[in-house]
Amino acid sequence: MAEIEIDGGPADPARLAALGLLNYGHFTTLRAEAGRTRGLALHLDRLVRDCRTVFGAELDRSEVRTRIRRVLPADGAPVIVRVTVFDPALGLERPAAPATPHLLVTTRPAPAAAPGPLRVRTTAYRRELPEVKHVGLFGLLHQRRLAQLDGYDDALLLDEAGRLAEGATWNLALHDGRELVWPDAAALPGVTAALLARAHPGPQRREPVAADGLGRFVAAVAVNAGVGVRPIAAIDGTSFDPAHPAVAKLRAAYEALPREDI
């Protein structure tokens, strides 16, 4: 069953309305199972860093861990946990007022099975403040909707120079048959991407990747905390083999990473 709390107590309608109406805050999302998760320290680092950027305030890491533990299922079932940092006292007129961050912590059941390969369409779009995982998701969801209406599963964002940046809610990794390649463009520094980069046993590099230069790659994957490593079957008109050995190796490297106690 899904859980929702604010600062460890019931999520009262007034404070939820404040978040919904102002839509100013930031978050992180992680997958937890049996009280453990991958990359906990990186998720906490993100929340602390983004809180300074968004609110000019400090965040207590130990409090975040406590709030997450409160909402985890007693039976250890896998869930997706989202920690949203916001201040219900801020208003439209003075978002620069001194902020007191509050923690909205929610869960939803984790997917029971790995989702299938993605078919994605590129689109010229840049998130506001791409280095922050903020709650301004309208533009991303609109691009995802447009891609789905056009017969694709999701959108892959391009920067102003036409270079691959990031998916709507995931990071992109490509493999040229010899090395793992991370697109070098303004994008969210994803926790799962960072973990996979650490775990990958082979050579890797960052470089700009043009949308019209995908033919040299043999495999592509989308990575985020919810699904881990997900193969991409096609980007626009370029197809990739979802069953390529490089995909299996990336997935195995990620799944071998140890989980930390929350």
Rank of each mutant, 00 (worst) to 15 (best):
M1H: 08
M1Q: 08
D7C: 09
D7T: 06
G8H: 04
A11H: 00
P13Q: 11
L16K: 13
L16D: 02
A17I: 00
A17Y: 01
A18Q: 01
N23G: 03
G25E: 01
F27C: 14
T28V: 12
L30K: 02
R31F: 00
A32K: 05
A32Q: 12
E33C: 07
A34G: 08
A34K: 07
G35E: 10
G39E: 04
L40R: 09
L40N: 02
L42F: 13
H43R: 07
H43W: 02
R46D: 10
L47S: 02
L47I: 02
R52E: 14
T53K: 03
F55W: 01
S62D: 14
R65H: 07
R67Q: 06
R67I: 02
V71G: 09
V71L: 08
P73N: 03
A74Q: 11
D75K: 15
G76M: 13
A77M: 14
P78C: 09
R82L: 15
T84F: 06
P88K: 10
P88E: 07
A89G: 12
L92P: 01
E93I: 04
A99V: 09
P101F: 03
P101V: 01
H102C: 10
V105H: 12
L118C: 11
R119Q: 05
V120Q: 00
R121Q: 15
Y125H: 08
V132Q: 08
K133H: 01
F138M: 12
R144E: 07
A147P: 08
L149V: 06
G151A: 13
Y152K: 11
D153T: 00
A155K: 05
L156C: 09
L157R: 03
L157A: 13
L158V: 09
A161Q: 12
A161L: 11
R163L: 15
G167M: 04
H175Q: 12
H175T: 08
D176V: 14
G177R: 14
E179I: 03
P183K: 04
P183A: 03
P183M: 13
A186P: 10
A187S: 11
P189S: 05
L195G: 06
L195T: 11
L196K: 01
L196R: 04
A197K: 13
R198A: 14
A199F: 12
A199N: 15
A199Q: 14
G202H: 02
Q204G: 12
Q204V: 08
R205T: 14
R205H: 05
F217G: 10
V218I: 02
A219T: 01
V221D: 05
N224M: 15
N224T: 13
G226V: 15
V227T: 15
V227M: 10
V229D: 07
V229C: 11
R230W: 05
R230T: 12
P231L: 10
I235V: 14
T238C: 00
T238A: 12
S239A: 15
P242A: 10
H244G: 06
P245Q: 07
A246Y: 03
V247N: 04
V247Y: 03
V247L: 09
A248H: 10
A252S: 08
A253P: 05
A256I: 09
P258Y: 03
